[in-house]
C-alpha cells in the first residue's frame, strides 16, 4: 500500500508536467489549428533559462521561472509571427513541418551551449531532496508542489477560457475564425495571447522537468515529445482531454517504470505512452475527448 501511495504521488506529479505541456499544444491547436512541434524546443529553452537565472545567477526558482516564462513567451510569439501567421490558410501540415524544423534548430542550439549542457543539471528548486509525509509515506516535497501548481494552473486556465471575455473570444476563434472576426472579436491580439500562454506553460513545465528528482539535459526534450501522445489520447482540441491525457500518461509511465518486467527492455516506460496512444487511436481516431472531423467537399 505504501508503495502505491508514493507511486500515485509520482504519477500525479509527472502527469501534472505532461498536462502543462499538453495544455500548451491544445491552446495553440485551438487558436491556430496547428500542431506546434516547436513547443518542445520552447519547453527545453524555458527549463534552461530557469536554470541560468535560478542556479547560475543564484536568484531563486521563482524569479527563474518568471524570467523563463517571459523568454519562452517571447520566443513563442516570434514563432507565431514568423512561421504560423504567414502559413495561415495553407494546409495544416505546412505548420507542422515548419515548426518541426524550428524545433530541431532550437533543441540543437540549446544543446550546443556548453555552460548549460556540459552535464545533467538541476534547476535549483528550494526543496532539494526533502520529503514530506503523505498518509504516513514519505514523498518528495517537490512533487507535492508540482501537483499543487499544476492544479492551480489548470483551474485558472479553465476559468479564463470558460468565464472571461478573452476566453469567450478564444473559444469563438477556435470555432470559426472568420465569423469571429466578423462579429468584432480582436482576432490578432487573442491569437498572440494564446501563443504567449503556450510559451508560459512550456517554461513552467521546463522548470519542473529540471526539478529534483529529475534532471535537465538536452534529452529532456523527449519529455515534451511524450506529451504529444497525452494530447492525442485526450484529443487535439480538448482542454479536458489534455488534463486527462496528461495524468493518464503520467500514471502509465510511472507504473510501467515500476512494474514492467525486465524483458521489455531498458526505459520501456519512455515508449509506453506511444503504445497507449496507438491503442487509443485504433479505438477512437479522434482521441477520447476530441471532436470527430466533420468534412465536406
Amino acid at each position: 500500500m505504501s508503495g502505491h501511495v508514493s507511486l500515485i504521488i509520482s504519477s500525479l506529479a509527472v502527469g501534472s508536467i505532461y498536462t502543462l505541456i499538453a495544455l500548451g499544444f491544445v491552446v495553440v491547436f485551438r487558436a491556430s489549428s496547428a500542431l506546434n512541434f516547436a513547443h518542445v524546443g520552447v519547453m527545453l529553452l524555458g527549463g534552461y533559462v530557469t536554470f541560468q537565472v535560478s542556479r547560475l545567477w543564484e536568484l531563486g526558482l521563482l524569479l527563474g521561472v518568471l524570467v523563463a516564462a517571459a523568454v519562452s513567451a517571447a520566443v513563442a510569439v516570434v514563432i507565431y509571427l514568423t512561421v504560423a501567421r504567414p502559413l495561415t490558410g495553407r494546409p495544416v501540415m505546412a505548420v507542422a513541418i515548419a515548426t518541426i524544423g524550428v524545433d530541431m534548430a532550437m533543441r540543437t542550439a540549446v544543446g550546443s551551449y556548453p555552460p548549460w549542457t556540459g552535464e545533467s543539471v538541476e534547476v535549483g528548486g528550494p526543496w532539494g531532496a526533502d520529503t514530506s509525509l503523505v498518509l504516513g509515506v514519505p514523498v518528495y516535497t517537490s512533487h507535492l508542489w508540482i501537483i499543487a501548481t499544476g492544479m492551480v494552473v489548470v483551474g485558472a486556465l479553465v476559468l479564463t477560457v470558460e468565464r472571461s471575455r478573452w476566453g469567450l473570444w478564444f473559444r469563438a476563434i477556435a470555432e470559426d475564425e472568420e465569423s469571429a472576426a466578423a462579429i468584432g472579436v480582436p482576432v490578432r491580439p487573442v491569437l498572440l495571447a494564446a501563443w504567449m500562454l503556450a510559451g508560459l506553460l512550456a517554461a513552467l513545465a521546463g522548470a519542473f522537468v529540471g526539478t529534483f528528482p529529475r534532471l535537465l539535459q538536452p534529452a529532456s526534450a523527449e519529455f515534451a515529445f511524450r506529451a504529444i501522445p497525452a494530447v492525442v489520447i485526450g484529443g487535439l482540441n480538448s482542454i479536458t482531454g489534455a488534463v486527462v491525457g496528461g495524468v493518464l500518461v503520467g500514471f502509465v509511465e510511472v507504473y510501467t517504470a515500476a512494474l514492467a518486467p525486465g524483458e521489455l527492455g531498458v526505459n520501456v516506460h519512455h515508449v509506453a505512452p506511444y503504445v497507449l496512444m496507438l491503442a487509443v487511436l485504433l479505438w477512437r481516431a479522434e482521441g477520447l475527448f476530441g471532436t470527430p472531423d466533420v468534412r465536406r467537399l
Binding site: M93, A96, E222, V266, V268, Y274, L281, A285
Partner: peptide
C-alpha cells in the same frame, strides 16, 4: 492509415521512438 493528417504525423513520431527502443533492446 486509420488516422489522418496531423494524427498520422504523431503516430509516425511514436514509431521513431518505438523503433529506437526495439533497436536498443532486442
Amino acid at each position: 492509415l486509420r488516422v489522418r493528417g496531423l494524427y498520422l504525423a504523431v503516430v509516425t513520431l511514436g514509431l521513431v521512438f518505438l523503433a529506437s527502443h526495439i533497436f536498443r533492446n532486442w
